[in-house]
Amino acid sequence: MQNFDDYKTQFGTSATDSGLSNVQIGTAARSWFDIELPTPPQMSIQDWEKLKMEAGHNPEAIVAFQESQYQSQIDYYNRCAESLEKIAESAQSQVIQALEELHIALDNNTILKEQVENLSSISEDMKTQADSAFKQMKILKQHYDLISKEAAAAKKDAAFSKILSTIAVIISIAMPLITEIAMPIILAKQQI
């Protein structure tokens, strides 16, 4: 809060010009907070190339990558949700403070009609911003749920790929052995 003596109104008059002094009034109309969300996780080209190389030799690399990506996205959406919750809490607190100031001003009849209207406008703007922050948080939650489902599906796909590659390795090892054992027996039977 600012001392009203130091406060310059949007109409260019100061508190002392209007005859009011030592009155506590809220801050001027402005953007109440800046929304700065964390940077989403991104994969570098080098990491992508490394994953492609490793995936050809090691199917576990895909599973490990999917798990790390899934965790990175969960962490990102958690940080976003925390940021939006803080913004929403701050906006709600400021709304309550602005409304309290409005009630005090009305009870004391010390603030001019224009200043009361400004406080009311600020309160409404803050309420709108708080509602917007809550809507963004809901959208973020929907994105988080979608990413969770996609990550679970990717994890299942990676596990299935791992099973198939294991079966392929077993078959590639077993085929020469079967050929070496079965071929002489088949040839021996044909000769009889």
Rank of each mutant, 00 (worst) to 15 (best):
M1L: 05
Q2A: 14
N3C: 05
D5M: 03
F11R: 05
T13V: 15
S14G: 10
S14A: 01
A15P: 01
A15H: 07
A15C: 13
S18R: 15
L20H: 00
S21A: 02
G26A: 04
T27V: 08
A29R: 04
F33N: 14
D34Y: 02
P38S: 02
P40K: 08
Q42Y: 13
Q42T: 08
Q46D: 10
D47H: 12
W48A: 15
W48Y: 04
W48L: 03
E49R: 12
K50P: 00
K50A: 00
K50H: 14
K50N: 07
K50L: 00
L51I: 07
E54L: 15
E54Q: 10
H57E: 02
E60F: 06
I62R: 02
I62A: 11
V63F: 08
A64T: 14
Q66D: 14
Q66R: 01
Q69P: 08
Q69L: 09
Y76N: 04
Y77N: 07
Y77D: 04
N78I: 07
R79I: 06
C80F: 10
A88T: 01
Q92D: 14
Q92S: 13
Q94A: 06
I96L: 00
I96T: 15
Q97S: 07
A98Y: 07
E100F: 07
E101W: 09
A105F: 05
A105E: 01
L106T: 05
N108A: 02
N109I: 09
N109D: 08
L112S: 05
E114N: 01
Q115Y: 04
V116P: 05
N118P: 00
S121E: 09
I122H: 10
I122T: 08
I122M: 04
S123N: 08
E124V: 05
D125C: 03
M126Q: 15
M126N: 12
M126F: 00
K127E: 15
T128R: 02
A130Y: 00
D131G: 13
D131R: 07
S132N: 03
F134H: 15
K141S: 11
Q142L: 11
H143Y: 07
Y144K: 12
D145T: 05
D145K: 05
A151R: 02
A152V: 06
A153E: 11
K156T: 09
K156G: 11
K156E: 15
F160T: 12
I163C: 09
T166H: 11
T166G: 09
I167N: 08
A168F: 10
V169T: 07
I173E: 01
I173K: 04
A174C: 12
M175H: 10
P176M: 02
T179W: 06
I181Y: 08
A182Y: 02
A188P: 00
I192T: 14
I192A: 15
